[in-house]
Amino acid sequence: MTDSDSGFVGFVKAFARRQYFWGIVAIILLLVVNLLKDPTYLAITVSGSGNLVGNLIDILRAAAPIMMIAVGMCLVVATGGIDLSVGSVMAVAGAVAMEFLASAGGSVASAFGALGLVILVSGALGLVNGLLVSVVGLQPFISTLILMLAGRGLAKVITGGQNTAANNEAFNWIANGRVLGLPVVFILALIIVIVVGLVVRRSALGLMIEAIGMDAKAARLAGVNRRALLFAVYIVGGILAGIAGVFATASVMTVDISRTGYQLELDAILAVVIGGTSLAGGKFNISGAAIGALLIATLDKTVVFLGVSSSATPAFKAIIIVVLCLLQSERVRNLIRRRRTVPDVTKEVVPV
């Protein structure tokens, strides 16, 4: 074996040890299953307007809002917390945007105004979570559960209990527009993921977030401002959830209070776990969370494509996620390795 072969093999082995490796494998297997049913499943065509059209493009578009909330969830979980309110924040963000656009008209300035208002309101909701966790001292589960329940009520107050629609081409372009044939919504999500990843990994911020997740007391003694960091991650999580709400509502220019963001907090948590972030805190992986979001979107599309009944869909998803998490488990993999290397002691040893 040449040195180049050894280097390549070493790279492959190192990559295979990453927890999100199995997420990539799962995406490939799901696509293969879909190909077996329809050999043209992965076909991508160019429409008359020059846009790329196909199932893969639909998966990328569906993954964008999940990527947003998964990245925010990733940072929150790294501190040892959890955010159950992201789905409700999406509904509030959609309600704010649609109500604003319904009265502000269809100009480009109105679209930017709606985006700014969404960021402000969703950041404020994240601030509430940070306040309850870091200042009041409530458990993150309880704090975000409060906003999870209250958020949809707030969205109903904003819209008067009605599904609100609006017309604004610039705002609609965010979800349905294309750049170089690719969905704008996915490009924006990818840019945000890259920016957040660079900020937390190219600075000491990521290390400090992991430090308070591993040992908050030791981090405080080392001079880490735990309270400020908790405020920051919950505000960022709220803003990213608000952006996800924009992605979800801009595609149809209507906010459905009861459905927008419904149970997406569960998908975000699954994406984070698939990506290799420990729910115990102290470790996070932004790129892994993005891959987990792509897997969730692929799985959702596969369920629909295979015609799995709506009543069996949760069980179908649960089985795949459980198998994937078992494959990622270091304890399970070590057990398999030991079973392979344990000698056969059942054979009788004959003395010489």
Rank of each mutant, 00 (worst) to 15 (best):
M214A: 13
L84G: 04
Q139W: 12
F171V: 10
V246I: 14
R339C: 00
T144L: 06
I274H: 01
G137E: 02
I257L: 09
D38R: 11
R226P: 00
R227K: 15
V179T: 11
F15Q: 06
K347I: 15
A70T: 06
G160S: 11
G72L: 06
G113A: 09
A104F: 03
V118K: 07
G181Y: 09
N34T: 03
K217P: 01
L264S: 01
N51E: 12
G80L: 10
R340S: 09
R338N: 06
L132W: 04
E330Y: 09
I66P: 01
R201S: 15
F186W: 12
S103C: 01
M208E: 15
V185N: 01
V96A: 07
E99D: 01
L182C: 04
L42G: 13
R337I: 14
T45H: 05
V195P: 03
A170H: 08
L221P: 01
N225Y: 11
P140Y: 07
F11A: 10
M73H: 03
I24C: 09
A114Y: 10
W173Y: 13
V345L: 15
K156Q: 14
F284L: 11
F15Y: 06
A111G: 05
A248F: 07
I274L: 13
I28E: 00
T302W: 06
L127Q: 05
L327W: 09
M67R: 00
R178L: 02
V272Y: 03
V323L: 15
L198T: 11
L131N: 05
T341P: 00
A293K: 03
R338A: 11
M253Q: 14
Q162H: 12
L131Q: 04
V184R: 07
M208F: 02
T313Q: 14
T277F: 13
S143E: 03
N55L: 07
I191V: 15
S143P: 06
A91L: 12
Q19M: 10
L324A: 07
V136N: 11
F305I: 00
V9N: 00
A124R: 03
G160L: 12
G137V: 01
M90V: 05
N163E: 10
D256I: 11
V121F: 09
